[in-house]
């Protein structure tokens, strides 16, 4: 399989379209014949990342590279950055606003879910400049 590259612009504060990029990625993976577990893991990682771009990043971009051995998701925002990445990775830790919590987010499960369902995750963040999250998901077998 030739490497397939997908690019998405994610609007900040736009919850109405949140999930569209993730849904599109899942659709592409299904068309390429990936197994349901891989599709699900990619969908969870991508959706959590997309939501983070909306909630925290003020929007950003998502780039996805797909080949048969690996799916690589790179999310880039120019938001406030994460002062303490280790703390942000803990389940239950959240800086989301009350409004965001009322929508059902802000449970502090975003980054932990991304770590749990990816094979590799790397977070580079600089306060005041933004955050880049890279996730790699490899199909089982």
């Amino acid at each position: 399989m030739e490497k397939l590259k997908l690019h998405y612009d994610v609007d900040g504060e736009d919850f109405t379209s949140a999930g569209e990029a993730s849904t599109d990625v899942k659709r592409v993976l299904r068309r390429l014949g990936f197994d349901s577990d891989t599709m699900r893991r990619v969908a969870i990682c991508m959706y959590e990342g997309e939501i983070n771009l909306v909630i925290h990043g003020g929007g950003g971009v998502a780039d996805v590279e797909v080949d048969e051995n690996e799916i690589v998701i790179v999310l880039v925002d120019h938001g406030p950055g994460i002062p303490d990445v280790e703390q942000a990775m803990q389940e239950g830790w959240s800086t989301a606003s009350q409004t965001v919590r009322e929508l059902g987010f802000g449970a502090g499960m975003g980054l932990p879910n991304m770590k749990r369902y990816s094979d590799e995750i790397a977070i580079e963040s600089t306060v005041g400049e933004g955050t880049t999250v890279t996730m790699k998901i490899r199909p089982a077998g």
Binding site: G19, S22, T23, R40
Partner: peptide, 15 residues
């Protein structure tokens, strides 16, 4: 009991 638009995305992605 959630009733906002994100319910659709979660339902779809979690299958």
């Amino acid at each position: 009991i959630m009733s906002n638009v994100n319910v659709a995305a979660v339902a779809e992605l979690a299958d």
